[in-house]
Design a protein around this nucleic acid. Structure first.
Length: 331
DNA sequence: AGGACGTCGCATTTCG
DNA sequence: CGAGATGCGA
DNA sequence: GTCCT
């Protein structure tokens, strides 16, 4: 989904090439900075209103330098890109990408598995006993986790979650963020934020609470949560299923103190590019904004104490940034 | 020319 | 055994 | 790989 629908993605093919090269840098070469630069370039390209025709035109785009400009021209002239073709036919690349489908397996382990001759998911199953709990669950649901979640299913999960949480503690509040909150028709996973009316970050500094663990236990008991990838005092990562007819879904639940709840909702609603732009604007207005708080910057750029926030809208008002409904944050 | 590029919670491994 | 480092995901 | 200093 490109940010502006004005001219329907005239450079979409170039953008996809760059994204694929970026993925290769991340997955095979383990270079996340090159990956991010390719992503940035890909976004510039897809937002560019006319077909890229020259090196100069390419280099004018943010994130596109000499090297990527040449790759773009190669692609435009030949309908393909030599490096991309080489990457695609590489057995190593194909194997690593197959292994990376398993949640909990990253570039490091994938490379090690390759060295040990484990180059397919089928072979991975033969050594499943050596995997961590997280990786075993990733393997078990490898196909299900790749299915998109229809909005209607998340709405039902939201209703169920709200009912269960309320039943177990009336002071708990809940918001499902991510692309669901941006009103997407379907989402890749479910990102839930919860807080408690009476819990502050000051309290949590010296005393943790069990609201998250208790919530998770209650949701396991009713059968919604089926597996756990990780669980601490503030973050649960795991698996849920609405009913036996539905696939298993990835779900994250975070517990935040009330004073950080709204910055958290803003942050986890995204998208990434929207957050980036809003944080930049905050800086220009003399603030610093992150997932926890909004703080005014002093003369020496030293952040002051967090500003008290009681709604998401307030954050926009403080930094004089025009309010955008979640559905309009797909930058 | 050379450093920055987001940061952090959790699970696991490694070091002492 | 505990403290720090690493991998991973987001 | 690109940008900034």
């Amino acid at each position: 989904m490109s940010s502006s629908m004005s001219s329907p993605a005239i450079n979409a093919d170039i953008s996809e090439m760059l994204l694929e090269l970026g993925k290769h840098e991340m997955n095979v070469n383990q270079n996340r900075f090159k990956y991010q630069m390719y992503r940035k370039a890909a976004k510039s390209v897809v937002d560019h209103p006319k077909r890229i025709q020259s090196v100069a035109e390419a280099k004018g785009l943010a994130g596109v330098g000499a090297k990527i400009a040449l790759k773009i021209m190669d692609f435009v002239a030949n309908g393909s890109n030599r490096q991309l073709d080489r990457v695609r036919q590489s057995d190593t690349n194909q194997s690593i990408n197959e292994l990376l489908r398993v949640s909990g397996i990253g570039p490091k382990l994938a490379a090690k598995l390759m060295a040990d001759g484990i180059d397919t998911i089928d072979r991975l199953r033969t050594i499943a006993d050596t995997l961590t709990d997280h990786q075993k669950i990733g393997l078990k649901y490898v196909d299900e986790f790749e299915r998109k979640i229809p909005r209607e299913e998340i709405q039902k999960i939201e209703t169920l979650l709200t009912a269960k949480m309320n039943e177990f503690n009336k002071n708990l509040l809940l918001t499902i963020c991510g692309s669901y909150r941006r009103e997407a028709r379907e989402s890749g996973d479910i990102d839930v934020l919860i807080t408690h009316r009476n819990v502050t970050s000051d309290q949590m500094k010296f005393k943790t609470n069990t609201y998250l663990k208790d919530s998770v236990r209650s949701l396991q008991k009713c059968g919604l949560i089926t597996d756990r990838l990780s669980l601490g005092d503030t973050k649960f990562m795991g698996v849920c299923r609405l009913s036996k007819e539905c696939p298993h879904r990835r779900i994250d639940i975070r517990f935040l103190p009330l004073d950080q709840y709204f910055c958290g909702i803003l942050y986890f609603t995204g998208n990434d590019f929207f957050n980036q732009q809003m944080r930049k604007h905050a800086n220009e207005m003399g603030f610093t904004l992150n997932e926890y708080s909004l703080r005014r910057l002093g003369l020496t750029s030293v952040p002051g104490e967090p500003i008290a926030i009681t709604s998401e809208k307030e954050i926009f008002e403080y930094i004089d940034f025009p309010y955008k409904e979640p559905r309009d944050r797909n930058f």
